[in-house]
Design a protein around this nucleic acid. Structure first.
Lengths: 265, 265
DNA sequence: CGGGCTGGGTACGGTGTCGTACAAAACGTC
DNA sequence: GACGTTTTGTACGACACCGTACCCAGCCCG
């Protein structure tokens, strides 16, 4: 019942995850991809035809939150042209627990309905594996977010969030309000303003009304500390080159002793 | 090189996830499962033969953290007899970003090496889907943890953590120290002690040295609020009955408007 | 040009949690 | 039964962040 849209094959180079697929896998998806435009604050979970879908953002950037919870909750992570939305489809779950909202100024995405997607995955195990590898990476992103939210002072969290947004945008200017950042990090708008002022004082940032420009990304990563970089480095190692480039964070402070379990007879 | 252990087929009823599998899928795994005993504080990621493995806890309860980070980090979630460890194998990732440590008093697990596991998954798509569904559920758990850590006052977080431990234990007595809880929630040991005293005053808890007993689980869930329950209810809906039983949290406060995206010609 | 609105600057008191510290109690061990 | 170790009880000052509030500056619109 979910007929693929009979349209010309769209260019997939706008999404790094799609671009990272081997040719043969990519062509299992391409005929079924539609390009959509989404606006700021949109929440997209179904195709215009009503089918559940997988979404590969191009210029749009999505902020993922838990569904069913109010609007006052922190962000779980960001998904832009490096990733996809709707991974739960690949895990055999119809309705995801999460919900994505368009951050910043809106843009385009490539979308494929659940039906054709699952057919394609059935045909190619490597396709499924490649997409699932991103799901794992997103889990790591959420884990990092948890760590950052729990132990980092606000300034560090703000720096991290800006870097994450920067990675997923073109250019160095982000069009968002202080309030938007505050809601993502679950803090006061006023606190975000203060953090911005500090960063502005250090010439790392420049902010105008509803728009801020990152002028010294290098030093911003220093402020963000080791909360930023781990998930991104893994993405680079396992999936595709990371948009802005990353180097691995400094070696871990504590050595890990992994003991072997004893066999029970 | 990774020969399955030539052992009698172990009883899999100790793990709810394994038990939830259809017979035919379960028997793809059973011949390759070994029962291991793990001790408190153990970190298990490989079989005694050195192979990466998937682990199905029975009586053991694991606390999952990010690997590569120091010991001073918050917990991402808990895995007990309702779930599994090593999901990243199913997503085509060799080494997981996470690391699990045995909480409380140790116990047994069922383990299968990566080789036989992947062979089994190749044979049965439903097996893979069933296991991946848990991976999605764990992601939701981490998401809840993030929310709780970010917005809840400490008392609520403690209550939630106790409930999560309770779900995965037998009986009503948890053998853990205040310090263990403090490290999981990334707070002071003293703060945890204070929370316990409050709960003890309300006759919800009774604590002795390195051991605490939950005497009124009902009221504990009230203290935990809506941070607890969402992921558990989903588990119940999609995988298997939840150990202690859960009812869905109260209806969401804010309605969600999901707009459809516009097609780009 | 003037009003309305959104976004940003700034302030103040309150408080939950932190870091640190020390002593008492419970337990294991010799 | 004495000792060391682990676990718990309790205290105090510090401070990051919170909630709230108000005003001002850009910006859109009529």
């Amino acid at each position: 019942m979910l007929k693929p849209n009979a349209r010309y094959a769209p260019d997939i180079r706008g999404n790094l995850l799609l671009r990272s697929l081997p040719q043969c896998d990519a062509w299992l998806l391409i005929p079924h991809l539609s390009r959509l435009h989404v606006d700021r604050e949109d929440q997209v979970s179904r195709t215009p035809c009503g089918a559940v879908q997988l979404i590969f953002p191009e210029t749009a950037v999505f902020c993922v939150r838990q569904a069913l919870l109010g609007d006052r909750q922190p962000a779980l992570g960001l998904v832009g042209h490096e990733g996809m939305l709707g991974w739960s489809l690949l895990m055999g779950v119809e309705e995801s627990f999460s919900l994505a909202t368009v951050e910043m100024q809106g843009g385009t995405v490539l979308s494929i309905a659940a039906g054709p997607l699952l057919e394609a995955c059935a045909k190619s195990l490597t396709l499924r594996a490649n997409l699932l590898r991103y799901a794992d990476n997103f889990l790591e992103q959420v884990a990092s977010m948890l760590g950052s939210n729990t132990i980092d002072p606000l300034e560090r969290r703000v720096a991290r969030w800006l870097l994450m947004l920067h990675d997923r945008s073109q250019g160095d200017t982000l069009s968002l309000t202080h309030d938007e950042v505050a809601r993502a990090l679950h803090t006061r708008r006023a606190s975000v303003t203060e953090c911005f002022h500090v960063l502005e004082g250090e010439k790392i940032l420049r902010c105008e009304r509803a728009r801020l420009t990152i002028s010294d990304r290098e030093r911003l990563t220093v402020v963000a500390g080791c909360s930023y970089g781990a998930a991104e480095a893994r993405y680079a190692a396992e999936i595709a080159p990371w948009p802005r480039g990353v180097q691995l964070p400094p070696p871990s402070p504590g050595q890990l002793r992994i003991s072997e379990a004893t066999l029970v007879p």
